[in-house]
Write a protein that binds this DNA or RNA. Structure first.
Lengths: 251, 251
DNA sequence: CGCCTCTTTGATGGCCCTCAATCTGAGTGG
DNA sequence: CCACTCAGATTGAGGGCCATCAAAGAGGCG
């Protein structure tokens, strides 16, 4: 039987987020935005980037601030949250190494529309939006890679729309758990651990539901042996079982 | 008092969709995907494109078919619909001249995930996905324009997610009507007419609601003098009034 | 060990879906 | 031109899912 009280400590805060210059160079070189660039070109790009370390829980960007930066997650994980006027937050995405947030050099966008919060300690690489635009112009391969990534994000967003429009909560939660496990899962004695501290509120904000509802759904999943969970951690135990609930659109 | 029975005929099916070669050249030249290209470059691009006319109601692409084309709307309007296994369709977008659909040359995507249906008679320009990828590589300006457009679509999708997650139906409907009016509105004696034939079912599929619910909401809006509507047509009368319901995130 | 936040569980109510019947108006063929 | 036909739209009654309100339980951190 799965114990709810976890004897284990699902440590998600790895200290990999130590930003050094050579580390930055390496991160940028691996960044999917810059695939296709020569070593020399990456070096040119690097000069325009700066870096900053954030502790888990820190705000990296706040909705309403002037949108001047384009940032790339170097190490660690962040959440992108759109606050609404009635206090109902919407968690749009969880981003890991190589993914971007901030202004994509769109002209009209005067200010950020999302909060970005560090889920783990992390290292953020950033540059001026105009600089990034210039990079894209100078290095067509970068523009193509970026396009590819944004297109993938768009597809993900459209899947979210499908789920929110058409499916009940348990299905949305199940699907979300599987996505999270695939993206940031780590093998662990309790199961396939989602290796980032997420509260029930976070899951609720990702699925368009309320904390209490998510808690009920997860309790049910737990009773059925599909997951193990505790305070700010969840592990997937029965992938197939969850996939049955999520429906047939999973990887 | 606003009459429900409209003496007027809100004709949306204009015959502009007559595809001729010089017309195609003009449409491509104006396409936001190709802004920044020289006249000669546009001509080069044109050679890889073909065109086809569709009548209102025709399927242009079907979910499940192999994803081999990238299409651009030359003239007219289409709807992008994602069918789900339980028959609940999700209307992801309505696209007009200059917008694209189909494969964006993503490698993994073996088959389309959406139906694309002509809302009006329309002219579709299309090319092989690989060709389009090649165009993007050859003409960096095109890649940048495309990136810009896809980024804009992503922001739109994220707004949809916000609405579906956090707001009640009347608000989603109101917001949708305002967006539609802004995108495809036309001044008319009944008000600001949404110049494309959309059924209640379409509105329902756009807002993640059911036909009956949308009908009730629209009836309410009508009684309050906010809109005029009839069989497959809606006109916005009181923009401010709708904006009050939609909340403060409108253009 | 105690505090505080996160989580869980219960009771109640409302929004929206479901089912069903009627109404309307656009297109068709006589 | 008109009656017919049928898809689309409207309206009502009832029920279910999920939000809301409320309170107790549990894990982490000092």
């Amino acid at each position: 039987m799965v114990r709810r009280h976890s004897p284990i400590t699902p440590v998600a805060l790895r200290s990999a987020a130590h930003c050094s210059i050579p580390e930055q160079r390496k991160l940028l070189g691996q960044s999917p935005y810059l695939t296709g660039l020569t070593e020399d070109e990456v070096n040119q790009v690097q000069r325009t980037f700066q870096q900053q370390h954030y502790d888990a829980g820190d705000f990296i960007q706040k909705a309403g601030e002037p949108a001047i930066r384009l940032s790339i997650v170097g190490a660690g994980f962040v959440k992108v949250v759109r606050p609404t006027m009635d206090g109902q937050d919407v968690l749009l995405d969880i981003l890991g190494p190589g993914e971007h947030f901030g202004s994509l050099a769109e002209l009209g966008d005067a200010s950020y529309r999302e909060d970005v919060v560090a889920l783990t300690d992390c290292c953020i690489l950033y540059t001026n939006a105009d600089n990034f635009h210039e990079i894209l112009q100078r290095f067509p391969a970068a523009a193509l890679s970026t396009l590819e990534l944004v297109a993938a994000r768009l597809r993900g967003a459209q899947s979210s729309i499908e789920h929110l429009s058409a499916y009940p909560v348990d299905r949305r939660v199940s699907s979300t758990l599987l996505h999270l496990a695939a993206k940031i899962g780590r093998v662990h004695e309790t199961g396939f651990l989602i290796d980032v501290p997420l509260s029930r509120q976070d899951i609720a904000d990702m699925t368009g539901a309320k904390v209490e509802t998510v808690s009920r759904v997860l309790s049910d999943f737990r009773r059925r042996g599909l997951i193990a969970s505790g305070r700010r951690w969840i592990a997937v135990i029965d992938r197939e079982g969850l996939a049955d609930i999520a429906g047939s659109d999973m990887p």
